[in-house]
Design a protein around this nucleic acid. Structure first.
Lengths: 217, 217
DNA sequence: AATTGTATATTTGTATACAAACTATTGAAT
DNA sequence: ATTCAATAGTTTGTATACAAATATACAATT
């Protein structure tokens, strides 16, 4: 029951379309305010409207696009206030997730976390930002999973996508990557010794720094 | 731009199907573990499979049902741990929402809140539980709106549905209703005088009492 | 009796067809 | 020139049709 966020591709067409659109929005290929016309996207991707509709529905529920009845969907704007709010919410929830993770983590999950941190160490030395972004995501997802709360995992996973649209990979700046590594290690160690309050504090400061603290923006 | 959660029925078929299914799950008419077959539901409601599929997709994204590829969706179980976790998360987020609401509320929103509280007073006197449940929902939604954070509104609105499945209307017990009224007044007053920390504290204790404190469970 | 293989029936996933709603444009009347 | 209405053209919302995947039943084999 571990491989929940597997990268295996058992995915349906709608799933693929969803990922492509989400990626497109995150990368700015679909601009804010742009109108997403079902037929157009369907033709671009060589599928019918049905999977496109399902993908759009999913994006709507994740608040990445807004749907106006009978008038189509547009890519939503993310104001800086929105981003500030998301940071605060993440601050609250990631802290709680780390707290629970410290209480409930299994040996296997600890092992996985350790591996991720070690890989982070490796790629930080190599200045490999793209791998670091992936590992960062994986690290946080592991903690959501270890928290044992499917609700918090659900919420944070969906917030994660929203955030990606904004942060132009804060990990690309070298010194930030080093700091980030250190923070991840601290979080890992707190969870390893099942120190819930410490895990929470470390995570909160990590999120605060990565989001609005100083380096980004 | 105020009427966001209007009760007006501009809704599409999929929207209606979604509400019916959500209600059915909350009321236990669709049992946990039950398999929701598209065709069956479509026939029951006299619509085609398309709107049913969209409704199921939405329920899936709200974590009320689980979808197994090519094998249909089943109603998810909500363990008591899940509910405990949801309470904690609500505690965190509702508190933050109240905090922001106290900072950002507009005169119009204050007016609406006041009206809701007055109606609550009225129906508490009449012991009218069903109206009170509606007003409770409205009260909280107004605060989400006043918080100005569409993310928090989004998350809490979706959590609200999850919660309904569990709490067999805690407002049906008369003494609880009276307490609840008092708490709502306290929250309103804190927001009215723009006292963000107080609003947060009041809301947190309100949520704690309503969810896991004593009366329910 | 248990197991495997095959045929059949459900059920989902996707494509297409059609109707309703909305947008834009044209043209006439003022 | 401006305004309004009628109309044509998009685009969404829903229904239906078909294909792919899965489940079920049953016979054949060991």
């Amino acid at each position: 029951m571990s491989g929940f966020y597997d990268t295996k591709d058992y995915s349906s067409l709608s799933e693929k379309v969803y990922r492509i659109l989400r990626e497109g929005i995150a990368e700015g290929r679909y601009q804010t305010g742009e109108c997403l016309v079902e037929m157009k996207i369907a033709e671009e991707l060589g599928v019918s409207r049905t999977p496109v509709r399902e993908a759009l529905k999913q994006l709507e529920l994740e608040d990445l696009v807004a749907s106006h009845p009978n008038r189509g969907v547009v890519v939503k704007a993310f104001s800086s206030e929105d981003l500030q709010d998301v940071s605060t919410i993440r601050h609250l929830l990631e802290g709680q997730a780390a707290y629970w993770a410290a209480e409930r983590v299994t040996e296997l999950q600890l092992q996985e976390l350790k591996e991720v941190v070690e890989l982070m160490e490796f790629y930080t030395g190599k200045n490999d930002a793209s791998h670091l972004v992936q590992l960062d995501t994986r690290f946080h997802e592991l903690i959501y999973e270890a928290s044992g709360s499917r609700t918090i995992r659900h919420i944070l996973a969906s917030l994660h996508h929203n955030i990606r649209k904004a942060r132009q990979s804060s990990l690309t700046m070298p010194d930030r990557a080093a700091c980030s590594l250190h923070e991840h290690i601290q979080i890992y160690q707190a969870i390893e010794r099942h120190d819930a309050p410490a895990a929470k504090l470390q995570m909160e400061s990590h999120v605060a720094i990565a989001a609005g603290g100083r380096p980004v923006e």
